[in-house]
Design a protein around this nucleic acid. Structure first.
Length: 504
RNA sequence: GGCGCGUUCGUCUAGUGGUCCAGGACGCCGCCCUCUCAAGGCGGAGAUCACGGGUUCGACCCCCGUACGCGCUACCA
């Protein structure tokens, strides 16, 4: 039989996907990528994007984790259509609130012989595992010991309140086949599939049961999740088939990797979306970057806005192999996105940055530097193509926020000659003669005039001026700096530098 | 160990049998622009397409095997 090609258009209007994280802390960038692909796929096909919290492991419960997840998702711009905080027609969206549902369905499984009670102690299970390993059995799995229990025996143990789990009864000797959009056809031998626990002894379901029941009840059309789930998909497929439910379309995404190609982990860098947010990355850049880790449109475009990603995204173009999370490209994308923003948008971000910086309060007697919007807008225009992060407006050009306290040593050696002080003094006198609010050209003409009178190249004045006024040897054109600082401040800084550098 | 998935420049990737002695992007190097630094433009280095067998007139592309990597192998997701 030829492999059925899944054409998204056929599902138009019925596309429903979900991001189903377990609330164990923060939103992992790998999780973001999974959520993003789900979101893009849903938006592209006018479907719904659902958030479901898989909190069925009480041992790993972390206070506030679900809230963090939601907050991080929203920050990234991934707005879901149904979820725990906003509700929806298929709720509740927290699995811990759906326990009775799982009970109902697992009973149905039991009545059909697809699932069974198991009263084995952990000791017996451990002993069994040990024994199987000793015998070098091909694969260790449960021996179906409790499947042999009679109905009466089961009832007695249940009445006796013996501790139990409910297991999936996997029939041996057959092939389990399913199609995956990114992997193609995948086959497993049922002999390699364990009688997985469906309901734990605490009454909570395992992921395998809960995920299948919920995806069906929530009418999920496409299960788009990480590759780590590929190996347990046969269990899920068995469940769908046993219930006689339609299987969703599966798409297992490649993993995100550390630079050494191991699974992306905290030990080798930041993995939480929150980490990148506090480091000053723009959400646009993070989303753009993560989208390209495992997917591309087939053309040469690298810079994307969310809207373009939605327009171009298809699951068929998702890669099969894992991708290293490489900061270099993220940095570049951040710079690109930052530069593409309007100065007004950057102004908002810069003001937030200043608010959290050492420059949030003006030093006394420095009123000449006011952080008015128009002033900051000039700083932005001057520095825009020189920064990759908003915070660099402060770290790369601190001189726009306070007079230089130190002067770059190497620049002093290179540009501060014995004749420099006299020349700069003359320049500052010339500046002093300028009109009240000199324009860039006024400063240029003044400097040109002084250079001619001194019979020196303009560079002999420009470099010392830059140094005097900024303390640095790099940055925007000196005349741009000087115009932004203003006449008074410029002259004051020249004089101050003359004092400091002379004495050193 | 078993099962599954993967393997194109350092990294992200294009490539679906001839147009590929493999294209783009990041990073790196050089040149141009220039008062500096960026940005921008131009150019360069960088991949025996993991390896070995097939199939074919012809393979990065199809098949088989090997190696390596990763995932799963829980009453975790």
């Amino acid at each position: 039989m030829p492999q059925l090609k899944i054409i998204p258009e056929l599902f138009l209007g019925n596309i429903r996907v979900r991001f189903a994280p377990s609330p164990t802390g923060y939103l992992h960038v790998g999780g973001l990528r999974t959520a993003l692909y789900n979101y893009l796929f849903a938006r592209k096909n006018r479907g719904q994007f659902i958030l479901r919290i898989e909190d069925t492991d009480r041992n790993r419960f972390v206070e506030g984790a679900a809230e963090n997840l939601i907050e991080a998702l929203k920050w990234c711009g991934l707005q879901f259509d149904e979820g725990p905080d906003i509700g929806g027609t298929f709720g509740p969206y927290m699995q811990s609130q759906r326990l009775d549902i799982y009970q109902k369905y697992v009973q149905e499984l039991i009545s059909h012989g697809v699932a069974y009670y198991c009263f084995c102690s952990t000791q017996r299970l451990e002993a069994l595992k040990e024994e199987q390993q000793k015998q070098k059995l091909l694969q260790a799995k449960y021996d179906k010991h409790c499947l042999a229990l009679s109905k009466k025996e089961v009832e007695e143990k249940l009445a006796n309140k013996d501790s139990f789990v409910i297991r999936l009864n996997v029939e041996p000797n057959h092939r389990i086949i399913f199609d995956d959009i990114v992997r193609g056809r995948v086959e497993f031998d049922s002999n390699n599939v364990d009688d997985q626990v469906l309901i734990k002894s605490d009454g909570y379901p395992t992921y395998h049961l809960a995920n299948v029941v919920d995806d069906h009840l929530m009418q999920i059309s496409h299960v788009i999740r990480g590759e780590e789930w590929l190996s347990s998909t046969p269990k899920h497929v068995l469940l769908y088939d046993s219930f006689k439910w339609k299987r969703p379309v599966f798409a297992h995404l490649p993993l995100l990797l550390n630079p050494d190609r191991s699974k992306l982990s905290k030990r080798q860098g930041d993995v939480a979306v929150e980490d990148y947010r506090t480091k000053g990355f723009l959400k646009e850049a993070l989303v753009n970057f993560v989208a390209l880790l495992g997917w591309n449109a087939g053309d040469d475009q690298e810079f994307y806005y969310m809207e373009e990603l939605i327009e171009k995204f298809t699951l068929e173009r998702v890669n099969k192999s894992g991708a290293v999370f490489d900061l270099e490209k993220l940095n570049w994308l951040n710079a690109e996105h930052l530069r593409k923003k309007s100065n007004e948008d950057i102004l908002i971000l810069l003001k937030q940055e200043i608010h959290h910086s050492q420059f949030s309060t003006l030093p006394a007697g420095r009123q000449v530097l006011n952080y008015s919007d128009s002033y900051l807008l000039q700083v932005i225009a001057a520095m825009k193509e020189r920064v990759s992060f908003v915070k660099e407006y402060l770290t790369k050009s601190p001189y726009f926020f306070e007079p230089p306290k130190e002067f770059e040593e190497t620049a002093v050696q290179k540009n501060w000659k014995p004749e420099t002080p006299a020349q700069l003094k003359k320049l500052s006198n010339e500046f002093n003669l300028l009109v009240a609010n000199p324009a860039k050209e006024d400063y240029e003409h003044a400097l040109h005039k002084v250079a001619e009178e001194l019979n020196v190249g303009k560079g002999k004045l420009i470099h010392p001026l830059r140094l005097a006024v900024s303390g640095m040897s790099t940055g925007p054109g000196v005349f741009d700096i000087v115009v932004i600082l203003g006449k008074e401040e410029t002259i004051s800084r020249i004089n101050k530098a003359l004092e400091i550098i002379k004495t050193s």
